[in-house]
Amino acid sequence: MTDTTPGREQARDAQHRFTRTPESIARDAEALRLRSRGQTLQAISDLLQYGSAGNVSRAIKRATQDVIAEDADEYRRQQLLRIAMLRREAIAVLERDHVVVSHGRVIRVGPMPEEGQPDTRKPLLDDGPKLAAIATLRQLDEREAKLLGLDAAVKVDATVHQVDPQDLELMQLISEQKAKNAAEREQIEGGS
């Protein structure tokens, strides 16, 4: 996927592979703009000196991928801002005390005051809103991790070893000897 225009200097990376420069990215974007306005691949090639219609086609594909990546980055940024706002709200709920209300009245803890005395009992606290805020924060963290790619698949290297009956016998003997050694050690330490 490189520009193969004859005589055009191309940038290379440390492994000598062709790499895109700001100029080539801008040129690819211009090819995409011209194509979206109805220009033929050959006309774009002639105008922007791509060397062939095939090179223009590849340039348009690269530019399209750049546009998609930019849109995805903007979407990701908007979602992260929204998550930050929701996180602030959930933390505010978590930090507040909530009281239990039943039939329009605050439920209080302790003995009832005598008639005519003010009710100085403490209100019964409701943990439900705090637990819901914690669950919401967890969901927000999971969503943020997905957006940032923190939960990428983990590559597992699993090696399978075949175990035959003799190996099992040996493992059993080792296990029994370890148990015997531990019992003897306990007996020695207990007798000192």
Results as ranks from 00 to 15, higher is better:
Met1Val: 07
Met1Asp: 13
Asp3Leu: 08
Arg8Ala: 13
Gln10Asn: 08
Gln10Thr: 12
Gln10Lys: 10
Ala11Pro: 02
Ala14Phe: 03
Arg17Glu: 03
Phe18Glu: 09
Phe18Cys: 09
Arg20Val: 12
Pro22Lys: 03
Ser24Gly: 05
Ser24Ala: 08
Ile25Val: 15
Asp28Gly: 01
Asp28Ile: 01
Ala29Lys: 11
Arg33Glu: 13
Arg33Gly: 03
Leu34Val: 04
Leu34Met: 14
Arg35Cys: 07
Ser36Phe: 01
Ser36Gln: 10
Arg37Lys: 09
Gly38Ala: 03
Leu41Ile: 04
Leu41Val: 05
Ala43Cys: 07
Ser45Phe: 05
Leu47Trp: 09
Leu48Glu: 12
Leu48Pro: 06
Ser52Glu: 07
Ala53Val: 01
Asn55Ala: 13
Ser57Glu: 06
Ser57Leu: 05
Arg58Phe: 06
Ala59Ile: 07
Lys61Phe: 08
Lys61Trp: 08
Lys61Pro: 00
Asp66Tyr: 13
Val67Ser: 10
Asp71Leu: 15
Ala72Val: 11
Ala72His: 14
Ala72Glu: 15
Tyr75Leu: 13
Arg76Lys: 15
Arg77Ala: 15
Gln78His: 10
Gln79Val: 02
Leu80Lys: 04
Leu81Ser: 08
Ile83Lys: 03
Ala84Gly: 02
Ala84His: 05
Leu86Trp: 05
Arg87Phe: 04
Arg88Asn: 14
Arg88Thr: 09
Glu89Phe: 09
Glu89Arg: 14
Ile91Glu: 15
Ala92Trp: 11
Ala92Tyr: 09
Val93His: 12
Leu94Ala: 13
Asp97Lys: 10
Val101Arg: 03
Arg105Thr: 00
Arg105Gly: 00
Val106Thr: 06
Ile107Ser: 00
Arg108Gly: 00
Arg108Phe: 02
Pro113Phe: 02
Gly116Lys: 04
Gly116Gln: 04
Gln117Pro: 01
Gln117Gly: 00
Lys122Glu: 07
Lys130Phe: 06
Lys130His: 11
Ala133Gly: 06
Ala133Trp: 04
Ile134Arg: 14
Ala135Ser: 14
Arg138Ser: 12
Gln139Phe: 01
Asp141Val: 02
Asp141Pro: 00
Arg143Tyr: 02
Arg143Pro: 01
Glu144Pro: 01
Leu147Pro: 02
Leu148Ser: 08
Leu150Thr: 01
Val154Ser: 11
Lys155Ser: 10
Asp157Glu: 14
Ala158Val: 14
Ala158Trp: 12
Thr159Gly: 10
Val160Lys: 09
Asp164Cys: 03
Gln166Pro: 00
Asp167Gln: 14
Leu168Lys: 13
Leu168Val: 15
Glu169Met: 10
Leu170Val: 14
Leu170Asp: 15
Leu170Thr: 15
Met171Asp: 15
Met171Cys: 11
Met171Leu: 15
Ser175Arg: 09
Glu176His: 07
Glu176Gln: 12
Lys178Pro: 00
Ala179Lys: 13
Lys180Leu: 13
Asn181Cys: 09
Ala182Asp: 15
Ala183Gly: 03
Ala183Glu: 14
Glu184Cys: 01
Glu184Trp: 08
Gln187Val: 04
Glu189Gly: 03
Glu189Lys: 08
Glu189Ile: 05
Gly190Met: 08
Gly191Arg: 14
Ser192Asn: 11
